[in-house]
């Protein structure tokens, strides 16, 4: 029996030889990560859970063909991305305008992107990622991206897929992926900036107080 902390390769080999428990350990290791990816694509808990189920069934069925040229999670994420893209294609709403890669961020690609996010609101990166309001604003911004833009953001930022893998999944060229990702990031920054600008700021009087309290033992 494989130990619970065995690496992916060991678990995959054990699962290939019929060890169901090893496959379950892989499932438990990646269930939430796959869910996060699917939720990023689909924005619905139930749809995302369906994709998690389908992804692992597909993985198990194709496990004998998995030769380990890429890591298990890259393979798993690629399958998940394909399932999500298929799902979106099947359920495509007629939003052709939104599918135009260049729309939304007011178009000037030469403009400086540095001031796109209000750094003063975000504080340091460490503080920003701990702040639930900011994370909710991020999720809300993702919601307003077109399906294609959201797909490239999720595949790249969440799954870390290469441009080649993304191009394969979206059935387009690497150049198109580059362009789409560029515009998607710009759009995302714009949407996020709009939301962060509306975060309430406390009055100047009370501003120092929480810092003082936070420093107390």
């Amino acid at each position: 029996m494989v130990p619970t902390d065995a690496d992916d390769h060991t678990l995959v080999e054990a699962a290939k030889s019929g060890d169901r428990r090893a496959f379950q350990l892989l499932f438990e290791r990646y269930e939430r990560k796959v869910y996060a990816v699917a939720y990023g694509f689909l924005r619905s808990q139930e749809d995302a859970l369906d994709v998690v189920q389908d992804a692992f069934i597909k993985v198990f069925r194709y496990l004998p063909n998995f030769e380990g040229q890429s890591s298990f999670y890259t393979w798993l994420y690629r399958i998940t991305a394909n399932l999500c893209i298929d799902y979106l294609r099947r359920n495509t709403r007629k939003k052709d305008v939104e599918f135009d890669d260049k729309l939304r961020h007011d178009g000037d690609p030469e403009s400086s992107p540095v001031d796109a996010l209000p750094a003063s609101v975000l504080g340091s990166p460490g503080e920003a990622v701990e702040n639930k309001e900011i994370l909710t604003a991020v999720e809300d911004s993702l919601k307003y991206l077109s399906d294609k833009h959201r797909a490239v953001i999720v595949m790249r930022e969440l799954q870390g897929l290469s441009y080649a893998d993304m191009a394969k999944a979206m059935n387009c060229s690497k150049g198109t992926i580059m362009s789409r990702l560029f515009h998607a990031r710009r759009n995302m920054q714009k949407l996020l900036r709009e939301r962060l600008e509306h975060l309430p700021e406390p009055s100047e009087d009370g501003a120092e107080e929480p810092q003082t309290e936070a420093a107390l033992p």
Binding site: A36, L117, V138, V154, E157
Partner: peptide, 14 residues
């Protein structure tokens, strides 16, 4: 920062 934020927001949902 954007990459971190996207990752964390989805992890929060998960």
């Amino acid at each position: 920062l954007m990459r971190d934020l996207v990752g964390r927001s989805m992890e929060m949902r998960a």
